[in-house]
Design a protein around this nucleic acid. Structure first.
Lengths: 340, 340
DNA sequence: ACGCTAATGGAAACCGTTGTCAGATTCACC
DNA sequence: GGTGAATCTGACAACGGTTTCCATTAGCGT
């Protein structure tokens, strides 16, 4: 029976035809995939863990890009992509245990997430994206520190010294407010922590007191949240000349808020993003582009093409500063028209 | 052993502790999900079949919305979402057979797709989205005919009689060109066929000879393809006063092409879309909004909350005409300024 | 001390497939 | 007709859990 379905070459066409015909007559629906998986020890699927509000995962083009790249790699290999149900709130680690997969990709979860711990306990290969390095685990991601450094250098060169920052959530608990230094350095989202640290280093080097730089955090990752964060930031610190956002989505919101309050970008206010999504490019946002599709694809390939289970690999993706129409030198209030 | 993990109440805490401790000492990674699935006859996952270029699925916000809604429903139920690898080109039906899932959701595949046939052969419940009704299968989708009717009525009322149409792919083979009547009526993508038919009915009723209305098809579903389709359409039929697109993405492309050739929208050219994606709303595109998130969520609920396997359900979702800033009466060439 | 009941631990059956292996059958060819 | 190869058949043991069922034991009352 098994042969008729799986190895047509081992038996005569006539017999195969007869077997299949009989099977159909008996209403046999074909081999059970689960039983097959048990026997062959191959699930034919890779699990994707992203402990995020799904609204985040699907509404952020950067995240969708990663998803697409991963799905592409899976499709090439003919294996399924199993999205593990893991709400941020629910501590339902069981879903990780229940997933019949040959490996996991972990993307953008806080480093203290119990789901992540559960994945690491499973005896299957794992690749992490945009996460802090873990002993013996493959990793892929951009050099966030260097990428943010490019943005910082760009702004410093333009002359900005009074800047404000808008960032995504830093921990599992909500804090839609200004961020304390402790919360900054203790952030559980690797990407956000790294970017903030890199900004601190770069601006400190330029003589800016980082402790005086306001950082506003938003739990949800939407354009509207970016706008409200910008409002909060500019209400409290109107002297700011540049708003640095850790994602393009937030930057789009900041742009909207700038327009709302009559600030011209970039003449009155510089806004920068991060990721390089299509819409950012369309409107000419100054940002750092990272190859999100490649990120997902590379992770998938790493996981699936694991013929050589040799040393764990760490792949760093290139990033590129894209100077658009949203950054310019600050307005020189101290040096009026006769200055210079 | 099983009891120790799954039913702590059935055995003494002492024994449970001992069992778990021993398991840990032996490096036992917890129950194998596949074996468990085999025995319990529950895979804990639903399969999603969308035989499309993944670039389509992930780049069309409407499709992403469906995906998000479905993922949301799965998350609520604590089951995984298994994306079945099915490229449009590859006839790798095996992937459908190999998927260990408790049910399938089928979205936006041609009605003659072998993958779809393979899904229907599997002895698991299935819900189809935006597909032609099938005997005994749950279905969810908007009333496409009525929705398109609203657009048509809007345009007819405005006075448009010289219209052109841009639609998505109608069959599995590529045809980036004008569409013959035969291809229109024989389209294998249910949604597209229905929309074209509804347009034909509405405009015929308004006295327009549908056979004379040019329809341009694009295989890929991108803004650029929408633009190139508009170019092809307007090059051949410059007298057209309204371009009807069967998706917002294509409409965005048509807008870009209009701008490129110096046509003002809506004064010189009316453009309409379909779906009601966020970006369309942002720019004020006249379109028909359909609740894509609800579509996915409803499908998921239907599949998962199947306590009552009674009669197959068909759920029709509401649509809403959203008149934006891209539709207006046609320029009255025959009746200049003194007309009236 | 005895018998009954309830609680508990352990053994065995089962889920549906794949892989192997021995034995039976067919067929061709010498 | 005998031999060998090729092909087919049928049985059976895993895979790693869950579930049922039975035997054992403990607890309790008389």
């Amino acid at each position: 029976m098994s042969n008729a379905y799986n190895r047509p070459d081992q038996l005569s066409p006539e017999l195969r035809r007869r077997v299949l015909e009989t099977a159909r007559r008996l209403g046999y629906p074909g081999p059970d995939p689960v039983a097959r998986s048990l026997r062959t020890r191959k699930a034919g699927a890779v699990g994707l863990l992203l402990t995020e509000n799904l609204s985040y995962a699907f509404r952020d083009p950067a995240a969708v890009g990663v998803l697409e790249g991963l799905a592409l790699a899976c499709e090439d290999a003919g294996v399924g992509l199993h999205l593990v149900p893991a709400s941020p709130g629910r501590e339902d680690v069981a879903a990780v245990h229940r997933a019949g997969v040959d490996g996991f990709v972990v993307y953008s979860v806080p480093d203290d997430d119990p789901h992540l711990a559960a994945v690491l306990e499973r005896p299957v290969p794992t690749v992490i994206i945009d996460q802090p390095s873990l002993e013996g685990i493959d990793r892929v991601g951009p050099d966030d520190a260097a990428a943010v450094g490019k943005i910082a250098e760009h702004l410093v060169t333009l002359g900005h010294r009074q800047v404000g920052v808008i960032c995504m959530r830093l921990a599992r608990e909500r804090n839609d407010d200004f961020v304390s230094p402790a919360r900054q350095s203790g952030a559980h989202f690797h990407v956000q922590r790294t970017r903030l640290e890199a900004l601190a280093v770069a601006f400190s080097a330029a003589g800016v007191d980082w402790a005086g730089v306001p950082v506003v955090e938003r739990f949800d990752h939407t354009v509207d949240d970016g706008a409200s964060a910008a409002r909060q930031l500019l209400d409290a610190y109107p002297q700011i000349t540049a708003v640095i956002c850790t994602s393009d989505i937030l930057a789009l919101g900041a742009m909207a808020e700038a327009e709302r309050r009559g600030l011209r970008v970039p003449q009155d206010l510089t806004v920068t993003g991060f990721d390089g999504i299509a819409e950012a490019e369309r409107i000419g946002l100054t940002t750092v582009h990272q190859p999100v599709l490649e990120k997902g694809k590379t992770a998938g390939r790493l996981l699936l093409g694991s013929a050589e289970r040799s040393a764990p690999k760490v792949i760093t993706l290139p990033t590129e500063l894209r100077v658009g129409r949203t950054s310019a030198p600050p307005r020189t209030v101290e040096e009026p028209w006769f200055g210079g």
